[in-house]
């Protein structure tokens, strides 16, 4: 047991650095994918065929591609396009691009749960597009969007470990570093799991609470 605790305390800085990077990736990609995902959702329901087609194409491509391949393209493809950003930025973009496809679908189905009559009534009353969106549609869609959204963010948090394979030193890379230092992998992995559970648990608890309160729209 003492040995187990020692593995953590000796290498505390490595753990902290790794998980700090994880949280940073999560925060950046999380906020970004919510924005981009909503945009994509708006595109998919818009009356403009070109935007609808692009949104549908993007979502279908991404949903059928492994996340690791999205990463690989970004890390090895974009330099050819003369885009030179840090690997951290690339990782955030990869996670963002991947997750926003799923956010898009949730937002789209959420918007579609609001009865058409609500929108028609609002427009009949003379509300503008923005008013309809912000006062009528989004508040009602919120209930059915939020729990799946939290679970998507949950998955995003876990997906950040994939960045370990692509030059970003976050939680998934910790065990490689520590084993080169001579630590046994079992306690290392156990500690990584514990830290992850610590991060993931609040999200799961929040999601369950919300589902129970709002009865789950599905």
């Amino acid at each position: 047991m003492g040995e187990f605790l020692r593995v953590f305390s000796d290498n505390r800085s490595i753990f902290v650095d790794g998980f700090l990077t994880t949280i940073q990736l999560f925060a950046l990609a999380g906020v970004g994918c919510l924005v981009v995902g909503t945009l994509l959702g708006a595109m998919r329901v818009s009356p403009i065929p070109a935007l609808r087609a692009f949104g549908a194409f993007y979502v279908n491509m991404i949903r059928n591609t492994p996340l690791t391949l999205v990463f690989a393209f970004l890390i090895f493809g974009t330099p050819k396009l003369n885009v030179n950003l840090s690997f951290f930025t690339f990782a955030s973009i990869a996670l963002l691009a991947y997750t926003s496809a799923f956010v898009c679908e949730v937002v789209r189905s959420g918007i579609n749960t609001v009865p058409v009559g609500q929108g028609e009534a609002a427009r009949a009353l003379g509300m503008t597009f923005t008013q309809v969106l912000s006062l009528i549609v989004l508040p009602q869609a919120f209930r059915s969007i939020t729990p799946p959204l939290i679970s998507i963010l949950n998955a995003l948090l876990k997906n950040t470990t994939v960045a370990a394979g692509f030059a970003v030193g976050e939680a998934g890379a910790i065990q490689d570093i520590l084993s080169e230092l001579g630590e046994k992998r079992t306690p290392t992995l156990l500690w990584i799991t514990i830290c992850f559970l610590g991060l993931v648990l609040p999200l799961i608890v929040a999601q369950r609470a919300l589902e129970r309160r709002w009865g789950g729209n599905r």
């Binding site: 370990a164 394979g165 030059a167 030193g169 890379a173 065990q175 490689d176 570093i177 520590l178 084993s179 080169e180 230092l181």
Partner: peptide
Amino acid sequence: VCSVTGSTPIQ
């Protein structure tokens, strides 16, 4: 500088 994840040289 680049190397393999966690390898001794990069450490």
